[in-house]
Design a protein around this nucleic acid. Structure first.
Length: 421
RNA sequence: CGGGGUGUAGCAUAAUGGUAGUGUUCGUGGUUUGGGACCACGAGGCCCGGGUUCGAUUCCCGGCACCCCGACCA
């Protein structure tokens, strides 16, 4: 993509109404635009990152048998009344509205009730199970206070998956498979080393739920970790009973600040019983389905990635989620010959299937370099009079600053299929 | 929801009871060209409603928005 055609621009000034580093950088670099408190639009560069993350999540969910669908944003009041979660006392983040034809609707802050309700139409027998479905959807939550940029908004994208199983054994197997799939997701997007499967409060159905917590000062949670044993405990459930249960002592735990990037809940049979989702077993008896719910905050994950890797110059995207793998910069000045030379390389990248953001703007080197640093594309390829005379292109690693000089073929080789690896 | 703070140009900011200055951005011209270069000219602004006042961007009241701390976050 030619940067001269990109409608977004960078800015030097930090927005006065943002304290969160992720929002400051994403806005300055033109990845997102703030619509209102806690609500952000995703612009072309930001959308690319979001889609990169989604495709990784999608691959891993598909790999464990997930089937993608998309539920509705508008939800029926009756469905939530059935589980006593329509009232604002029970759920304090509801957005609600009225139908002109009469009656009330809610804006989806979660989808476990509606999806369970819908599944009644498709699950009748043990032969219909298991079913694993997931979606990427915008959730709307009427938070009293939005904060932390895109890490905690009133509108955000979440991947939520729901499992429907016949018995505890199948249910637990899938629950465990999801933990592994989530680990792969966080590994692939680059935060695996600092992301912990964390014991957290379990809600009504089980003693614990599992959260995926990533170490970052920008987070809102506090957890205690024991790296060697791979154990992490949310501060909210840290007590003597928990410690004994998990076989750790308080002394060996380290306190860290984290952001919750994923969580999984085991509903047992309770949820299905509440909503009346039953199947006939082999004996012909009606039995509630075993259910689980599994979430990944996609936009929050993007924010966490920004927070974790940004340096003083701007963002630094891991290759797997970067909007482009390569930022091509031409420093032709008024030199038409160099411009043409750079254009050819741009075409060459396209011919090799490498997605490139090409800074073809009539701008000075400093401006282009600063913008490039801010945008955080993993590799910068520079074309100038100097590189033409040398017969090699300059390749700079955004994260390490390491510089290579490659000829055209080595350059293509470096980036072709780089993302598959 | 409790407490606190702020609303001035696209962005970031200053001053002011007598209609506002700077930086950046943007436009034009020129000199430049490997880290936001320089010069000239130009464009662009006081959140909304009410009150006090001869006169309000400024003071007062209300609203709205935004930010911070806390609470909340199945």
């Amino acid at each position: 993509m030619k940067q001269s055609r990109l409608f977004t621009k960078t800015r030097k000034e930090v927005p006065a109404d943002e304290v969160a580093r992720n929002a400051q950088l994403l806005i300055r670099a033109g990845y997102v635009a703030k619509e209102m408190a806690g609500v952000y639009a995703y612009l072309p560069l930001g959308l690319r990152v979001l889609e990169r993350i989604k495709s990784i999540v999608r691959e891993e969910m598909d790999a464990i048998g997930g089937q993608e669908l998309i539920m509705t944003a508008l939800q029926r009041k009756e469905v939530w009344e059935r589980t006593n979660r329509w009232s604002d006392e029970a759920v304090d983040v509801w957005f609600k509205s009225e139908l002109k034809a009469g009656g009330e609707v809610g804006f989806g802050w979660s989808h476990e009730e509606p999806i369970g309700e819908m599944m009644k139409s498709y699950i009748a027998s043990y032969k219909d199970l298991p079913v694993y479905v997931y979606q990427f959807q915008t959730k709307l939550r009427n938070e009293l206070r939005a904060k932390s940029g895109i890490m905690r908004g009133r509108e955000f994208v979440m991947k939520d998956m729901y499992s429907f199983s016949v018995g505890e054994e199948d249910h637990t197997a899938f629950y465990d498979a999801t933990i592994e799939a989530y680990k792969r997701v966080f590994e692939r997007v680059g935060i695996g080393a600092d992301t912990f499967v964390t014991f957290a409060s379990g809600g009504a159905f089980t003693q614990f739920s599992h959260e995926f917590q990533t170490i970052t000062d920008a987070g809102e949670d506090v957890i205690y970790i024991q790296r060697e044993k791979g154990i992490a405990i949310n501060a909210e459930v840290l007590n003597d009973d928990t410690l004994r249960e998990l076989g750790v002592t308080r002394e060996e735990l380290t306190e860290v600040k984290t952001a919750e990037v994923g969580n999984i809940f085991n509903f047992g049979r309770q949820k299905a019983e509440d909503i009346g989702l039953v199947y006939k077993n082999e004996a012909g008896e009606s039995v509630p389905v075993w259910m689980g719910s599994y979430g990944i905050g996609v936009t929050r994950l993007m924010g966490v990635i920004v927070e974790k890797f940004a340096d003083e110059k701007g963002m630094v995207w891991p290759e797997a989620v970067a909007p482009f793998p390569v930022h091509l910069i031409e420093l032709s000045g008024q030199d038409a010959e160099i411009k043409e030379y750079a254009d050819e390389l741009y075409s060459g990248f396209k011919d090799h299937g490498v997605e490139v953001l090409y800074d073809d703007r009539d701008a000075r080197a400093g401006e282009k370099f600063n913008d490039s640093d801010l945008m955080g594309i993993p590799y910068r390829v520079v074309v100038s009079r100097k590189t033409k005379e040398e017969g090699k292109y300059e390749v700079v690693n955004r994260r390490t600053g390491e510089v290579e000089h490659l000829d055209e073929e080595s350059l293509y080789e470096k980036f072709v299929n780089a993302r598959a690896a």
